[in-house]
Amino acid sequence: MKLSSWEALKQYREDTKDEVSLLNPESTKIILAVGEATCGIAAGSKKIAAVLQEESKKMGLDNVEIIPTGCYGCCYAEPMVEVRIPGQAPVHYGYVNEEAAKKIIAEHIVKGIIVDKNVLRVEVTST
C-alpha cells in the first residue's frame, strides 16, 4: 500500500495504533520489550525472549506480546526486558537471566508484583 498524502500518513498512524508495541493505555495487550541490539544478543537476550515466550504460554497468557527492541544504553545490565502493562508505568529490568525471566512472568505479569531485585532505575528525559 502506498500512502499518497500527508493526510494518508496521519490516517495510517491512527489506523495502526493497535498494532504497535508501544505502551497503549487503551489496549489490553501487555508488551515485553527485550533488548536485542548486538550487546543484548551477545549477553543472551534471544534465549531470554524464548524463555519469556515459553513461560507466558505455560501460564496461558494470550495477551502478552514479546518484541525485540534496540539498545537502551545500559550495556552493563544486559539482557534487559521492559514490561509495559496498560495503565501502569513501564518497568525496566536488568541482568535478566532465565530464573529472573521466569519470575517476571510468574510474579509481575501474573500477580502484579514487581521483581525488585532486577529493577533498573534510569533517569531519562524523553523527547
Binding site: I41, A42, A43, E78
Partner: peptide, 19 residues
C-alpha cells in the same frame, strides 16, 4: 570493537561472542 563493551574483554569464535 564489536560493540559489546559491557562484556569486555570479548572473544568471538565465528559468530559467537564470549564475554
Amino acid at each position: 570493537c564489536v560493540g559489546a563493551c559491557g562484556l569486555a574483554p570479548v572473544v568471538m569464535v565465528n559468530d559467537r561472542v564470549f564475554g
